[in-house]
Design a protein around this nucleic acid. Structure first.
Lengths: 336, 336
DNA sequence: TTGTATGCGTTATCAC
DNA sequence: GTGATAACGCATACAA
């Protein structure tokens, strides 16, 4: 079914059908109705490829996700979901491209084949070849998280430094003097993963500023790692009375280790952090945490649409600092 | 950059460039090399829309996912990941379409706009209007899970009935006489959600066959629901010594409730189920469970590609029955 | 208010 | 072994 067939059946020219659909030219009520009736009857819809070829745009956004083999965290998943939802609201489709390594067929297809009008890149590294690739291809893009050279690009990120610092200040206000940071996995930290680096920076600064004793450790992104990490911490640093963390996937393990050690939160130990709301509320007791906003994807789509509309405008950034939701996992330092 | 420009620079016609790329006609080594050099230099790649228009296929698969607002379970997420990966291996892209209700713009775009060569539909209901819609549109599709009328369609599913029955038999072999089934959420069960229905059927049959006492209950798909569900179960049915479940998201809550009640698994209570390996291994002690295969997506893509190639072949089905991995959560019935 | 003609970038058919 | 050309389905400038 194509526009010519509709035109034939309605006894008009193809352009009239086209204009009746787009409304870019006035079409008499009578004609429009006749055309619409036939369109409804035959369930006609313009061929996307032909339209894309003619218009030079695909009405599709590319979303570059980490390789499928890696398990996505809840935060990442929430981000994908919100991107898809925001795109759908703007009547745009989303093309998925799993990409990690430098040489990736799917990524290259999306970038070079003009399959999308713009790209959202998630889980970028501080030095990311894909960013360079997109720049040289001249394809509009927005990154979630920022590289080491954030000035020329368009991005949206969570201000982990400030958020972790706020957690430290909150804990210090409650009288805690010995605080631990449970960071992301050693691999990520070593690879120069932005959130992990910036969280550490914020932690160090706040600890120094308040004259506290701080200890930071890396912890794999899963429950088992959280459990052993906390066991080790309790064993080696018994003076610690509070924990700050951005490792949501480790939370169930942390909870398990605490329960096993008969440590009562927040009576014996306080915990605060940055996590998707789902994880914070699933923790027992509910975790005092900055809820990573689910609208990250919405913002990314907004920025990308702006960038597509005006590619030469100076790139905009969005550094989100959601408020810390006071729940039940933080309390005054225990009297010794 | 387009094929004409390449042709101009190479001093050949567009068709020669096209054939040099596709290999559908012999091109002299000399010419081919010259063309390839220019293609490499300019980083040319065929325009996807033009190719789709000409060839009548898009080299893209549609993946219809539950609405983004609903949290995807780990099993669902693993499925999305494996679909994307399998498609990438076949040099195909994946277009995401969030759809739940009957009237969905994104779904309609994908179906009617010829944006994809075929569709994978996940989380279908026993009666699903989208299936009808795809059938009348004549678009090849594969469902993950099957409807009430599975004969005419192509699908891949997990045999929940058999798997839950096997769990029951395993528990009965260990001497358990009073077994509970913790099913999916009341809403899903009420809506006629296939896996929930079939799990119950398999449970009932196995329980009857072995002359056991069975009790089945619904449980929301999250930790909190699992916790309260188990508390209620322990309270009202103290005779229960074993549990079978397919509700992986409830597992952390179940674990918490057991710990709180000082019930030791598997000494006091045995648990077996169907879950993504990630959940089974995260449980303490590790859960004896049928690991839902991550290759579900791979199979779905294979079936879909077959269907696209030969749309008139009789539809194929795939009912997977992965083996139950014996871990640490099941043991002999406690002596009273 | 409507119709005609053109071109988007490919691939494929036909001619040489 | 290669080149000219038509066609895919649409949107739009131009003509009436």
């Amino acid at each position: 079914m194509n526009i010519g067939e509709i035109a034939r059946r309605a006894g008009v020219s193809r352009s009239t059908v086209s204009y009746a659909l787009s409304g870019k030219r006035t079409v008499s009520d009578e004609t429009r109705r006749r055309i619409q009736a036939i369109i409804d009857e035959l369930d006609y819809r313009p061929n996307a490829a032909a339209r894309a070829l003619k218009e030079g745009r695909t009405r599709t956004l590319g979303l570059v996700i980490p390789p499928a083999s890696l398990r996505l965290t809840d935060m990442q998943l929430g981000f994908v979901a919100s991107v898809v939802e925001a795109a759908a609201r703007a009547d745009l489709d989303v093309l998925l491209s799993p990409s990690g390594g430098d040489h990736d067929r799917s990524f290259e297809r999306v970038v070079t084949g003009r399959r999308v009008d713009g790209v959202i890149l998630m889980e970028i590294r501080l030095e990311d070849t894909r960013v360079t690739r997109l720049q040289q291809a001249g394809l509009p893009f927005v990154t979630i998280g920022h590289t080491a050279h954030p000035h020329g690009t368009c991005w949206v990120d969570v201000d982990y430094a400030t958020l972790i610092a706020r957690c430290v200040h909150h804990l210090a206000d409650l009288g805690h003097r010995h605080i631990a940071l449970i960071n992301r996995s050693p691999e990520l930290v070593a690879a120069g993963y932005g959130p992990a680096q910036r969280a550490l920076a914020g932690f160090t600064e706040a600890v120094t500023q308040r004259g506290l004793t701080g200890v930071d450790l890396c912890c794999g992104d899963d429950a088992a790692a959280g459990e052993s990490c906390l066991e080790q911490l309790l064993d080696e640093r018994p003076e610690i009375t509070a924990i700050a963390t951005l490792n949501e996937a480790a939370l169930p393990g942390i909870e398990r280790a605490l329960e096993r050690a008969r440590i009562c939160v927040p009576r014996d130990l306080s915990i605060a952090g940055v996590a998707a709301r789902h994880w914070a509320e699933g923790f027992r007791p509910a975790l005092t945490a900055a809820d990573v906003p689910t609208e990250m994807g919405t913002h990314a789509v907004e920025l990308l649409l702006e960038r597509i509309a005006t590619p030469d405008a100076p790139p905009r950034h969005l550094l989100l600092t959601p408020p810390i939701s006071l729940r039940a996992s933080t309390g005054p330092v225990p009297a010794r």
